[in-house]
Amino acid sequence: MSLDRIFDIAGSGMAAQSIRLNTTASNIANANSAASSEDEVYRAKKPIFSAVQLDVMQQMEMAINGQDDASRGVQVDGVVESEAPLDMRYEPHHPKANDDGYVMYPNVNIVEEMANMISASRSYQTNVQLAESAKNMLNKTLQLGQR
């Protein structure tokens, strides 16, 4: 039955997009978290997506049953920190200024984060609609042969 697999696929999509939304929220919240050194400062976080591939045994099983070997949803491989240059500002009166009078600000690009946020929420909605459609199709199938 492949219809209930759609729930897994759409669910994996929703989970991945919500992690992306979480990192975006964290980035925007910390956009102005100042620090006095490069090691302490917050860096923008980005999730890495990849398609879920079946392992060899599952692929063999699928091939024997004559089924497709398409991947099964999406997964988040990890969350990495952005390598973009940090924002160094000359603010000698800031309590966190270093000896030279510089304060480190995170490498968060607000415009980029807003675009990411909209994209993530739209993708999340698409996945919800997928699950909804699959639910309707499954419901229909259960009514097969009834009056």
């Binding site: 039955m1 492949s2 219809l3 697999r5 759609i6 696929i9 759409a10 994996s12 999509g13 991945a16 997009q17 992306r20 997506f49 990849s50 398609a51 497709d68 398409a70 991947s71 099964r72 949803g73 999406v74 994209s119 993530a120 993708s123 698409t126 996945n127 997928l130 459609s133 699959a134 199709m137 199938t141």
Partner: peptide, 27 residues
């Protein structure tokens, strides 16, 4: 036909779930 429609729904759902995956090819 009904069975194939189910399978196609799964393939298309997989495409949509991977809409933001770098390097993913739609099938």
């Amino acid at each position: 036909a009904l069975e194939l429609r189910e399978r196609r729904a799964e393939v298309l759902a997989n495409n949509l779930a991977n809409a933001d995956t770098p390097g993913y090819k739609a099938r």
